[in-house]
Amino acid sequence: MELKTVSQCTLEEVLIAWNKGFEGYFVRIDMDEEMFLNRLVGEGLSPKLSIVAFDGNTPVGIVLNGVRHLNGRKTSWNGGTGVSPDYRGKGVSRALMDETLAIYARENVEIATLEAINENSKAIVLYEKYGYEITNHLLFLSGEFEAHVKEPLQLQVKTIRPEQLSSFAFYNEDVPWQCSWHSNKQGEASVFYNQKNEAIGYMLYRRVWNNEGQLESIRCYQLELLEKGNVEDIPHFLTSLTNKKVHITTVNFLASNPVTNYLLENGLEVTTEQVQMKKEMD
């Protein structure tokens, strides 16, 4: 078996490795060329730090990796480890993990992160053998939401660029990789203030519009209440985007986030459960 970086492979080889690697996976994540390249760029994944395993000329496994500075620490993310069905249980995953951690060491990564589907116990056990620990339980939610606001709230909304979130002292950078503003530069962000001009919450999201120019759905990456905010403020946050019924999807929301519980009580359902795992590098 030979390991190459994604930058040393053809796009066709990488796509074969990815699509075969996740064949029969818990969530369908097949990608074509455009989808793959958009993900690579949008999520800050590095062709030089990502690897493909070959058996002869056949791509049989893949790991996509990215590195960023978050909270002042050099942080890596494993954006997907896949092995072709015929090669599972034959040591390919271990070879990919060995090389991935060697890459992190060469890049002076301080903390390594990844997410794994709850039901994927074999992968979780493998990551634990390499020193990863479960730090959070994450939920994807989806459903129709219609805010029922009894009376208007004197709410001030400041709409900003996603990258501007990092300039606020209250902003928490310690979120799953795909929920970071770095991964959502094409999205939108809002900060909410009360009458005393105190920040009470913020939101990072993308709105999807149909061909008629009507709002079709909202994809939420962060929806956070601050110390001065409370659960009753959440519908007001959402009605600042639309006062009509809308389909909402959340990405990797913390199960412990009070916003998550509110959304579950108001029409959304869990579609996918994941664990966030982290490893302190030596």
Results as ranks from 00 to 15, higher is better:
Ala112Asp: 04
Leu15Val: 02
Gly72Ala: 00
Gly267Asp: 07
Glu227Phe: 14
Leu215Glu: 05
Gly229Thr: 08
Lys129Phe: 03
His247Thr: 13
Ile218Cys: 09
Leu215Asp: 07
Val231Leu: 15
Lys48Trp: 12
Gly79Lys: 04
Leu101Cys: 07
Thr81Lys: 03
Glu188Cys: 04
Phe253Gln: 09
Met1Arg: 01
Leu215Phe: 09
Tyr193Trp: 10
His69Gln: 09
Arg206Trp: 09
Ile200Gly: 01
Pro176Glu: 10
Val191Asp: 03
Asp30Tyr: 14
Phe54Tyr: 12
Ile62Glu: 01
Ser76Val: 03
Asn243Asp: 15
Gly229Ser: 08
Lys122Ala: 15
Asn243Ser: 15
Glu133Asp: 09
Glu115Pro: 04
Asn197Val: 05
Met31Lys: 09
Lys74Leu: 04
Ile16Ala: 11
Asn38Lys: 14
Asn210Met: 08
Ser166His: 11
Glu224Ala: 12
Val259Met: 11
Asp55Ser: 14
His148Lys: 15
Tyr202Lys: 03
Ala123Cys: 10
Gly66Asn: 01
Ser166Gln: 15
Phe36Asn: 02
Ile134Thr: 00
Asp98Phe: 00
Ser256Ile: 08
Gln186Asp: 15
Leu241Cys: 07
Leu165Arg: 03
Pro258Gln: 11
Asn197Thr: 02
Leu241Asp: 07
Ala102Tyr: 00
Ser183Leu: 10
Gln8Met: 13
Ile200Val: 07
Leu49Ile: 08
Leu226Thr: 06
Pro59Gly: 09
Met31Leu: 13
Asn108Gly: 04
Thr81Leu: 15
Val83Thr: 07
Glu265Arg: 10
Ala102Leu: 12
Thr10Trp: 06
Ile16His: 14
Cys179Lys: 04
Lys90Asn: 08
Arg106Asp: 06
Val270Tyr: 02
Phe253Val: 09
Arg206Glu: 14
Val92Cys: 11
Tyr171Phe: 15
Leu114Arg: 01
His69Ser: 10
Tyr262Gly: 13
Lys90Arg: 13
Thr242Gly: 07
Asn243Met: 11
Asn210Gln: 10
Glu273Val: 00
Gln178Ile: 14
His137Pro: 02
Tyr202Cys: 00
Asn71Ile: 03
Val92Gly: 09
Val6Gln: 07
Leu70Phe: 02
Thr135Trp: 04
Lys196Asp: 06
Glu43Thr: 00
Val83His: 02
Arg68Tyr: 05
Gln214His: 13
Gly131Asp: 02
Val275Ile: 05
His137Cys: 05
Leu37Phe: 07
Pro235Ala: 12
Glu216Ala: 13
Glu33Pro: 02
Tyr132Met: 07
Asp32Phe: 11
Asn257Ser: 14
Thr5Phe: 10
Tyr104Cys: 14
Asn243His: 12
Tyr262Gln: 13
Glu173Asp: 11
Glu224Cys: 12
Val125Glu: 15
Gly267Ala: 10
